[in-house]
């Protein structure tokens, strides 16, 4: 691998737009979280639930378009070890997103702060990666968007095991089942994406090889 190939690959995926977008989201998350936590009529740091739910979702939505090139058939007919590249791409994106969001939530990190932001970033990225496998990169955002918005609208705040498992985006970070669910979603989504890549565009459905 050379720097030139890496540069061209990142440009082909619009990675720089993603990086700038994640930076802006982290900045907005920090500002919104600080404002919410300092309002006297709210519940201190625990008022940051909307930030914890929405910032990782937005970052993951930005990741979606980077999960495929402009022509999957064309790229998959080349000898590059695509599974390794996809794994690297997703892991680096997850680390970048997590680090940016950690910086946004360092104040009271265990009360809807950095910890919950990381958990939700994992879960949302897993949903987007799985969405890319099932629907293609253009629509990869859809499952994560629908799921997180639905959970946020339902607003379950109980901490039973079952609720914590399905409502992981709005749970406190101290609830273990919420972490298990988010980590499982990430693992399944990442494994599917690394193995098969993004679904080919309409008209080229059948079984794309997904590269080696």
């Amino acid at each position: 691998m050379t720097n030139r190939l890496l540069t061209l690959h990142l440009r082909s995926r619009g990675a720089f737009t993603f990086l700038v977008g994640v930076g802006v989201i982290a900045l907005l998350a920090w500002a919104a979280g600080t404002w919410l936590a300092s309002r006297p009529y709210f519940d201190g740091p625990a008022a940051r639930v909307p930030v914890v739910a929405l910032a990782p979702l937005l970052a993951a939505l930005l990741l979606g378009p980077t999960l495929a090139g402009a022509d999957e058939d064309l790229e998959h007919s080349t000898p590059l070890p695509w599974r390794a590249w996809r794994a690297g791409h997703l892991l680096v994106a997850a680390v970048v997103t997590a680090v940016a969001l950690i910086l946004a939530g360092l104040r009271a990190p265990d009360t809807y702060g950095a910890h919950a932001l990381v958990r939700n970033a994992l879960g949302c990225i897993g949903l987007v990666a799985g969405g890319a496998v099932l629907l293609g990169a253009r629509l990869a955002w859809l499952p994560a968007f629908v799921y997180v918005c639905a959970v946020y609208a339902a607003a379950p705040r109980q901490t039973s095991v079952v609720v914590a498992a399905w409502a992981w985006p709005v749970q406190p970070s101290t609830i273990t089942p919420s972490w298990l669910t988010a980590a499982t979603i990430f693992a399944v989504g990442a494994a599917g994406y690394v193995h098969g890549g993004s679904r080919a565009s309409a008209g080229r459905r059948a079984r794309s090889t997904g590269g080696p």
Partner: peptide, 12 residues
């Protein structure tokens, strides 16, 4: 390989 309808990279 040249596909029938190939997606191009607008930034390139």
């Amino acid at each position: 390989y040249l596909p029938q309808a190939f997606g191009f990279y607008p930034r390139f």
